[in-house]
Each structure stands twice: as C-alpha cells, then as structure tokens.
C-alpha cells in the first residue's frame, strides 16, 4: 500500500502541516472562553470597567482577592471539597464492593438486585428530584452535609457499580481458584488478590466521580436552600444573580470554580477519558 514517490511524499507532508494548522486553530477556538476567563480575572479594577473583554491588557490580583473575601469564594471552595470528597469516597468504596459481588460472588437474587441498581442509569435524576426534596426534609437531611453527600453519592453509585463490575468480570477465574487452594478466605481473595488488579479502574472511577460531584449544580441548588455549605457552582450562580455587573470578581470566581477541574483533567486526562468511554460504551 505504501508505494509513494518523492513527490507525493512532500505533498503528504504539506497536507499534514495544513491539518495541524487547522487543528491548532480549532483548539484555540475551543479554549478561547477559558483564555477570556483568565484574562478578565487578572485585570486591574480600572481596566475591567473600561475594557472588560480585551485580552491581557493589564495585570492585577485584586479581582481574585475580592472574589475570595467579599464574594465568599474562599468558603465556597472549602464547601465544594466537603461535598465532593466524602461522596466520591462513598461511591468508590460501595461500587467496588458491590461490583465485585455482582461479578464474582453468586448469591440468590443477584440479577434482580443488579437490575434495580442499573435502573439508576436509565432514570434521570430529574424524574425524582422533587419528591426527594420532601423526603430529605422529613428525614431532617435538608441543608446538611450528610444529606447532600448521600444524594451526590447515590447519583453516582449505579454507574460506579456497573463500571467496577466490568473490571472484575475481566479477571481470569484461575486467580481465585489458586488463592482458594492456598487457603485464602473469600474476603482475603477480594482484598489481597482482586483489588490490586483493578486499581487502574478504581483510579479512573475516583477522578471521574470527583469531577461529576464538583460540577454538580442541581443537587446543591435544590437541597441546600439556606445556603449553608454552599459550594462553588451554586455560589457562582448566586454571585451572577446578585452582581453580574461586577465582571472582574465574577471572572475571578469563575476561574476559582474551574481551576481544580482544569488541573485535575489535564493531569489525569487518560483516566477521565477512560471513565467516560466505558460509561458510554457499556451504558
């Protein structure tokens, strides 16, 4: 297939260069809104008033400082972590355990339970969000860290279980048979033999779930009505409603909201993409 003359080779190289130029242009277009955010967030107060969207025409950290203190983004950051970290841990631990059981431990009623869990993948959160509000109210879980963490976790559990089950199913049967002959208990087989083999899956699930919870807007909007423990997403929305003319601090608040996402995604691009791919392909 590769009988190419010198002439078509140069032509191929030119074509490739053109392709790269096109792709670079499109990439720049895609990340332009991010560039705009950084630029406006780092402007001086005067420059924001005169020329809010001119790119990098001045430099100052005053917007960041104002968003952090006056705009309360400092406490929103803390709340975002308080809502994302425990719920992510809960998803990872429960999904890994259940995924293992659904993949490798036969027990009565297993497939029925699995179908119930998968139901969570089919029914959007939207369908039951309103009754859930009143349920949480009567359980005393509205406006509480515990309640919102539990709800956030429950929105990720179905996917997590599905995801981890696929990893455990792919491991060879000979593994646990050998461990059993060596006298390992069922729990030891899970903990010492199987768990280390799916660590890449656990990593992908953790990053993916954390980002989902960090980005979640509807859950804190609905279930933290008083505003105690308000995270970055609803905090930014509140700021937008109250002071949309205050473009400088608003840009800084936006930057604070997206910065952890951008850093985590760029650092763990492979794991995040894997999470999405398997979620989409198997879901």
């Amino acid at each position: 297939m590769r009988h190419r003359t010198a002439g078509s080779n140069t032509r191929g190289r030119l074509l490739l260069t053109g392709k790269h130029l096109l792709l670079l242009g499109l990439s720049a277009l895609m990340i332009f809104p991010l560039v705009l955010t950084v630029s406006t967030a780092l402007k001086s107060g005067h420059d924001v008033k005169v020329n809010p969207f001119g790119l990098f025409s001045s430099f100052s950290t005053e917007n960041i400082v104002r968003a952090w203190t006056v705009g309360d983004f400092g406490s929103y950051v803390v709340n975002s972590f308080l809502l994302s970290v425990p719920s992510t841990l809960l998803v990872v631990v429960l999904s890994t355990m259940a995924g293992y059981a659904f993949a490798r431990l036969p027990f009565a009623g297993r497939s029925l339970l699995f179908y119930l869990v998968v139901l969570g993948l089919l029914v959007p959160f939207f369908t039951y969000m309103i009754p859930l509000y009143f349920q949480l109210r009567s359980m005393g879980l509205l406006d509480s860290l515990l309640g919102v963490n539990l709800v956030l976790a429950s929105t990720g559990l179905s996917f997590g279980t599905f995801f981890m089950r696929a990893f455990f199913s792919d491991l060879p049967v000979e593994l646990d048979q050998a461990a059993r002959l060596d006298g390992a208990s069922e729990w030891q087989i899970f903990l010492k033999v199987m768990l280390p083999l799916v660590s890449s899956g656990i990593g992908a699930l953790a990053v993916f779930t954390f980002l989902q919870n960090w980005n979640n807007f509807l859950v804190p909007l609905l279930y933290i009505p008083s505003g105690e423990y308000r995270p970055l997403t609803t905090g930014l929305y509140l700021f937008l409603g109250g002071r949309s003319i205050d473009i400088g601090p608003l840009a800084a608040g936006t930057l604070i909201t997206i910065l952890p996402v951008v850093v985590l995604f760029v650092a763990m691009q492979k794991q995040v993409t894997q999470g999405f791919l398997s979620g989409a392909v198997k879901g």
Partner: peptide
C-alpha cells in the same frame, strides 16, 4: 485535551463566560 476540556467544565461557569 483542548476539545474535551469544555465538556468537563461546570455548566454554571460555561454559562457565565
């Protein structure tokens, strides 16, 4: 990274920008 990043961002932030 450039093409996928927008999908990862919280939609509130996307809406603001």
């Amino acid at each position: 990274i450039a093409f996928f990043l927008p999908f990862m961002l919280p939609q509130v932030a996307v809406g603001v920008v």
